[in-house]
Design a protein around this nucleic acid. Structure first.
Lengths: 211, 211
DNA sequence: CAAAAATGTAAGCGATAGCTCATAATTGTC
DNA sequence: GACAATTATGAGCTATCGCTTACATTTTTG
């Protein structure tokens, strides 16, 4: 029975016995592993079920489509990432920008270090169609939080459009940490990482600070 | 299961008669159009051939695989983009950073405005093809050029590691222009665009300049 | 324990994708 | 005009994919 070509990303049924919770966990675990190893295109639902040690039917009992399955993995990952960022922002809500920026840049790097291989696949390979736009949503969340901080610290800041300023800071820091973690690990070795944090912090602070 | 798929992205044969050059052009044209309209997954080689008004066999005479076909489109596009950037850099080679930065930020925006819809598809959906190589290579080219500029203007610059500085500038400007063009067109309206260029220029100049 | 509900299984369907190949049409050479 | 390259054609092969469905097993309920 097909209900049109509707994009259905909600779980088909929720696991209410312990047994099925284990099944769902195994499926998500396997999806993550297969995505990392094979990439999105080659990660077939049959293969994922096999890796999970579960029949293909069970997979489709909990996830109505491949997209829904991947969306669940994305959700898991982005929530973990957002947790890191949000914590950092709360922690520095009252700190001056010099301190806050440094802390947030560190947090951004940490956030990107939560399963970086998965992060790479999600960021680079997942088609941005349908419900799979959650990754951009995370960035938007971060953007709102940062804008709140900037509004609260207006007096320390060389006042431009706070909207544009928040956009610039979030986009720049996100891109820099992303690129550093995924493409320039040489910049983030133990002895160099701090230097990198210094530089990115400097970028943001000099841009924002009255001078 | 056999997964011995070879990554072959070189043209199968080169067009040496005028007739076949037209065919190749039509195929590339059609690929671009179909990619924009349908995205990578739904852009089937059969459909592309049909749109090009060419048989599927002809397509495979010049491109050994779908990946090779898309790679050719990527090449075309990135070359066009690099041309814009390189021109700008040559133009400001002798200018102080205030002037140079502004020009380069403008150039970056222009480069992203070369067929932005295609750029979006390539940036968002294509990384699974050819492993990002071509697009990352472009960024690496830009990075080398900028590093050359920074080396030549060492005396104007608050000296940090020039390698890291170039990485930060290129990554930040690329990400900001990319995000602005694709996700915040409201920031680039005729009356606001200049303000955005000012801001990004400021970001870079304040970061680099002795102060 | 028996009936009902929840969970699990896997063969296989329908669709479509990328791609091949035998063949035909066109062009270049003499 | 004859003959060989070159270029173009498209029916159809093979493979795989996402997903359904008919059925088996386990757990809960009463």
């Amino acid at each position: 029975m097909h209900m049109g070509r509707k994009l259905q990303t909600n779980p088909r049924k929720s696991a209410c016995q312990e047994r099925s919770r284990l099944t769902v966990d195994a499926i998500l675990e396997a999806t993550t592993r297969v995505l990392i190893k094979e990439g999105y295109d080659r990660a077939s639902t049959n293969k994922i079920a096999a890796v999970a040690g579960v029949s293909i039917g069970s997979l489709y009992q909990y996830f109505p489509s491949k997209e829904a399955l991947v969306a669940a993995v994305i959700d898991r990952h982005t929530q973990e990432q957002m947790r890191v960022t949000r914590n950092a922002l709360v922690k520095v809500a009252a700190s001056p920008i010099e301190v806050a920026a440094r802390e947030l840049v560190s947090a951004a790097i940490d956030a990107h270090r939560v399963n970086p291989k998965l992060h790479r696949v999600l960021a680079e390979q997942i088609p941005r169609v349908g419900r799979l736009q959650n990754i951009e949503a995370t960035e938007r969340d971060a953007y709102v939080l940062v804008r709140g901080y900037l509004d609260a610290h207006r007096d320390e800041i060389d006042f431009a459009d706070p909207d544009v300023a928040a956009f610039i800071c979030v986009t720049a820091v996100e891109a820099l940490t992303h690129a550093a973690v995924l493409r320039r690990p040489d910049i983030l070795t133990d002895e160099k990482a701090e230097k990198f944090v210094d530089e990115v912090t400097d970028l943001v602070v000099r841009y924002l600070r009255k001078s």
